[in-house]
């Protein structure tokens, strides 16, 4: 069992080394919380897989928005 600081350290290293795959992994993890919420909110009108997809889409949109903020505040990097 790893302790928390080491875990964060590992996540940090992974994020820097493989940013894309780490972000996708993190997104999937976050979606573990979001997707059931979406499913619950829809009141059974959608399937579980759709709820999962909508959760991911929401996260993606959120990520895109963050990305655009980075562009707005640090345009030189692009």
């Amino acid at each position: 069992m790893m302790n928390l600081p080491a875990l964060i350290e590992l996540a940090h290293i992974q994020l820097r080394r493989r940013p894309w795959s780490s972000l996708i992994f993190l997104g999937m993890c976050l979606n573990l919380i979001i997707a059931p919420a979406v499913y619950g909110a829809a009141g059974g009108e959608i399937e579980r897989s759709s709820a999962w997809a909508i959760g991911l889409l929401g996260l993606l949109t959120f990520g895109l928005s963050i990305y655009l903020f980075v562009v707005i505040f640090q345009p030189e990097r692009f």
Binding site: A42, E45, I46, E47, S50, A53, I54, L57, L60, L64, Y67, L68, V71, F78
Partner: peptide
């Protein structure tokens, strides 16, 4: 990713491609 406007289009293309495979992906 260096061109913010086109990057958004790029992401959009990926999603619509997925929706072409499965139009009912999001319900």
């Amino acid at each position: 990713v260096r061109n913010p406007v086109m990057f958004v289009v790029w992401i959009g293309t990926i999603i619509t491609a997925l929706l072409t495979i499965n139009p009912y992906l999001f319900g």
